[in-house]
Design a protein around this nucleic acid. Structure first.
Lengths: 135, 135
DNA sequence: GTTGTTGCAAAGAATTTGCAACATA
DNA sequence: TATGTTGCAAATTCTTTGCAACAAC
């Protein structure tokens, strides 16, 4: 049983060829990708899949917590993410994303929220920069 | 000389009635607003301004560093921000935004980036929650 | 077989651009 | 007056929806 299958099962989605190809493509990808780009890439690789399905699959997986979403210049970008909560270090040149553990951040979040009387529902902390390879 | 005028001057923009009304509307507003909403509001208040101009003004001001931009459900939202760098605590119910100082965050950012060999170009750290009034 | 899924075409929605009229400095 | 700005309409883009054919369980 592959992790790919598990993800679909957990999300309550049937394992269709299209969804498997999306997950497979996302699996080892280090950078975030948009629905449009992923669709073009899959089509280019000969995988039969419609843009609508790519959108629906990515949205469903993100909703189930398997993907993180970024906003890239007005477009949604998606990336597979680990099980535990974390943050991102994004290279603005190559779009590569590295995951960061965020203990420090978690602490800051709860303290700041408490101080302002907020009930926390979520947070996001990302760092943007140029990675070593791109410099 | 108002701060509003200064902002335009600094951004190298002429002080037109439209831009002044945008800035004025943004001035004391505690929550982030989208171009569409701001346009509707200004029009509703009798201010003559086109949607195109609202977009152009907000984009220019954000580019000049006078506004912060958020992504609100696929739509860009803008908010006047202070001079010093800070972070946000956003109420998901009323969209009110409170500013947070972020010394802890700054520290985390530079340490994490260094650890990964990144040259930092920016970062964003926001907390989402429900504010005291909305609970 | 039943029910979920696909994908085309069309609809929607946010944002940008061309360009002639107009306002600011 | 010279140059920046406006705003309408049209064009672009990203994303969603209707619906009939189809695939997974």
């Amino acid at each position: 049983m592959t992790t790919t299958d598990e993800a679909l099962r957990t999300a309550g989605l049937r394992a269709t060829r299209q969804r498997l190809s999306v997950l497979e493509s996302l699996r080892e990808r280090p950078d975030a990708v948009t629905a449009q780009d992923l669709h073009a890439e899959l089509r280019g690789a000969g995988e039969p899949i419609g843009l609508t399905t790519v959108y629906r699959t990515l949205t469903a997986l993100a909703g189930a917590g398997f993907l993180d979403t970024f906003d890239r210049d007005g477009e949604q970008a998606f990336r597979r993410c680990g099980e535990v909560h974390h943050h991102h270090l994004v290279c603005e040149t190559c779009n590569r994303v590295e995951e960061l553990s965020g203990d420090d951040v978690e602490r800051w979040v709860s303290q700041a929220a408490t101080r302002h009387g907020f009930e926390v529902t979520g947070h996001r902390a990302d760092i943007f920069g140029i990675c070593a390879a791109c410099r």
